[in-house]
Simulated scan of single mutants.
Amino acid sequence: MLDNHQKNIATFIHLSTFSRFIIPFGNFIGPLILWISNKDKSEFIDHHGKQALNFQISILLYAIIIGTITIPLFVFKILGGLDFMEFNGFHDFHINIGKPSPLLYIGGGLGVIMILAFIVELALIIRASLKARNGDLYNYPLTINFLK
């Protein structure tokens, strides 16, 4: 039988991921501290702590992958408009973005996907915290289980 203390700890594990807006890497530090200090007290807390950390690690991994694909596309587009052989100072410095290339569309599309993924991430964290508050187990979708 779960008591309110266990439900509250599990809920705060999920909500502590929002501390990243105040503290760098707070989305890892907050849940990690709460999980480590309470994981031996309850299987319920242990499950939610692992899920929250696995989800945050997975989101970081996905963001790194999409970022490594997106950033070079923008850089290639910007550097493609520069002529380095005739660079005579900043008075002749021009970047031609009059003709959008497919690279720009692909990079912009991936950027939009990252924004949508951020909104979905926030919604999933709120949903997980509500499930924990109600005493239900929750598994985040598309999560790689680093902690088992």
Rank of each mutant, 00 (worst) to 15 (best):
L137M: 04
N88L: 08
I126W: 06
Y62T: 12
L103Q: 13
P141N: 06
G80Q: 04
T17V: 13
K7V: 00
L116P: 01
N145G: 04
I66A: 11
T143R: 07
M114K: 00
I64Y: 05
D83R: 12
L34S: 05
G30H: 07
D3M: 03
F74C: 06
I113T: 03
T70I: 00
K7T: 07
I66D: 02
E43D: 15
K50M: 08
L2E: 09
F25I: 08
D40S: 13
S101M: 08
F12W: 15
L82V: 15
P100V: 08
N4I: 09
N96I: 09
N134K: 14
M1D: 15
E86M: 12
K41N: 10
I33K: 02
L124M: 08
L60I: 10
A52R: 06
H91T: 14
I65S: 07
I78S: 08
A10P: 01
I144T: 05
P31G: 02
I106W: 01
P24H: 05
N27T: 13
F87R: 05
I95Y: 00
I115V: 15
A132G: 03
G111D: 03
F18C: 04
P72D: 04
R133A: 14
I33Q: 07
R127T: 12
V120L: 09
D83M: 06
I29W: 02
I97G: 00
S42N: 11
I66M: 03
H14S: 08
F21Q: 04
H94P: 00
R133Q: 11
R133F: 03
L110W: 03
L130N: 10
K131W: 00
I29K: 04
E43R: 11
M1K: 09
F55W: 14
S42P: 07
N134Q: 15
G67E: 13
D136S: 03
L142R: 08
S19Y: 03
L137D: 10
N4D: 15
H5K: 12
G81S: 15
P24L: 06
D46Y: 02
G108M: 06
G109I: 08
I23T: 12
S42W: 10
G107W: 02
K99F: 10
F12S: 11
I115Q: 02
A132L: 11
I106P: 02
L103G: 13
N54C: 06
F25G: 00
I119V: 07
L147V: 13
V120T: 09
R133V: 09
R20G: 15
I59D: 07
L32E: 10
H94E: 13
F76M: 14
G108K: 01
A117S: 10
Q6E: 15
T143S: 14
